[in-house]
């Protein structure tokens, strides 16, 4: 088993943190993991991309070439990265932020950022909502392991809100 995932959007949306959390969960579950990212010099704005490779065997080239899964949190990211997907791959879009879905058969649209604002209270939870959806759609790690990883990484007073975000994303991907 070897799966390649790419999370894309703009700087500040948390696509790198989401990839790190998924990678941490997979590592805890005993899988080989390579997690990498590319971003511009800006702290906010500008294109941001993160990648996770999860495998049962040693991983050499650490970057994703033909993702089995792409998350796009902006229109620009969607237009740029859907083309690399394998033909059986899955494209997950933020429904509101990607108004014009690319022409890709296996596309899932979830109002990720809208759910974060309306259900959890802030757009900054969007990446954790997305992560919840990804856990369900890709079935690579268990929700419980991810929950533990989230709880360990976020500030203590935000654990509850983050767990809620994770759950909402997971439910939305039913």
């Amino acid at each position: 088993m070897k799966k390649e995932l790419r999370f894309s959007g703009s700087g500040g949306q948390g696509v790198i943190t989401a990839a790190v959390l998924l990678g941490e969960a997979a590592a805890l579950e005993g899988r080989e993991v390579c997690q990498s990212q590319s971003y511009g010099p800006e702290a906010r704005g500008g294109a941001a991309k993160s990648e996770v490779i999860i495998s049962d065997e040693a991983i050499y080239h650490p970057h994703v070439e033909h993702p089995d899964f792409v998350l796009a949190m902006t229109q620009k990211a969607a237009d740029k990265y859907y083309k690399d997907l394998t033909k059986d791959g899955l494209l997950l879009l933020d429904e509101e932020l990607v108004p014009n879905p690319p022409d890709f058969p296996n596309t899932r649209r979830i109002p990720i950022t809208k759910l974060a604002i309306e259900e959890v209270g802030k757009p900054l939870f969007a990446n954790i909502v997305a992560l919840g959806a990804i856990v369900r759609l890709t079935d690579l790690v268990s929700l419980d392991t991810v929950k533990d990883c989230v709880a360990k990484r976020v500030p203590p007073h935000t654990v509850e809100a983050n767990e809620k975000a994770l759950r909402i994303g997971y439910e939305a991907a039913k």
Partner: peptide, 9 residues
Amino acid sequence: EMVGHLRER
């Protein structure tokens, strides 16, 4: 950068 920023198990 490939190795410095890479996360692995």
